[in-house]
Amino acid sequence: MSVHHGTLLCLGVLMMTAGAVMALGGWVQPPGLLFGLGLLLGLGGIGLLVSGLCMAMKNLQIAVPGHFLLHPRTGTRFSPQQALAIQRLDRIRREMSADTVDRSPEPEPTMPSTPPPWTMEPPPSYDAV
Rank of each mutant, 00 (worst) to 15 (best):
R73K: 14
C10S: 15
L33D: 13
L11P: 01
M111K: 09
L49I: 01
G26N: 03
D99M: 15
W118A: 11
G66D: 09
L69P: 00
G32P: 05
Q87F: 00
T74L: 10
S125G: 09
D102A: 15
L43S: 06
L24E: 12
R88P: 03
M120C: 12
V101Y: 09
W27H: 10
G42V: 00
P109C: 01
L39R: 06
A98E: 06
P124Y: 05
I86V: 08
M120L: 10
L84R: 13
L89N: 15
Q81R: 14
L11M: 12
G12T: 06
I62C: 05
G12Y: 06
L69A: 14
G47P: 01
F68T: 10
L43G: 09
T7Y: 10
P112T: 09
N59D: 15
E121F: 03
V101T: 08
Q82A: 15
M57R: 15
T110A: 11
E106K: 12
Q81D: 12
L89R: 15
P80I: 04
M15F: 12
L48G: 00
L70V: 02
L48F: 03
G44D: 01
T17W: 13
S51L: 11
A56Q: 04
I86K: 01
C54K: 05
G25A: 12
L9E: 02
P116W: 05
G45A: 04
G12W: 04
N59G: 14
S125V: 05
A56C: 07
L48C: 05
R94A: 12
G19E: 01
E121Y: 05
V64C: 06
T100F: 08
P107L: 02
G36H: 08
G26T: 03
N59L: 04
V3D: 15
L43E: 00
R94I: 06
V21M: 10
P116M: 02
P72E: 10
P109V: 05
I86F: 00
F68V: 13
I92C: 07
A20M: 09
A18W: 01
A98T: 04
K58R: 15
G45E: 01
G12V: 00
I92H: 10
T74F: 03
I62D: 03
S113I: 10
L84P: 02
S51E: 14
P30A: 14
T74R: 10
M111R: 13
Y126K: 10
A83F: 02
M55I: 08
G42Q: 04
P115A: 11
P123H: 04
Q82P: 05
R103E: 08
L8G: 01
P80K: 00
S97L: 14
P109K: 06
G6E: 12
Q81V: 13
H71T: 15
E95Y: 06
A63S: 04
D102R: 14
M111A: 12
V21H: 03
C10F: 12
P112R: 05
P124S: 08
L41K: 02
G25M: 09
W118R: 12
V13T: 08
M57I: 00
L33P: 09
A128T: 11
F35E: 03
Q81F: 11
L49T: 03
A56N: 06
L11S: 12
I86N: 00
A20C: 08
L70C: 02
G66S: 08
R88F: 07
I92N: 07
M15T: 01
M96T: 13
E106D: 11
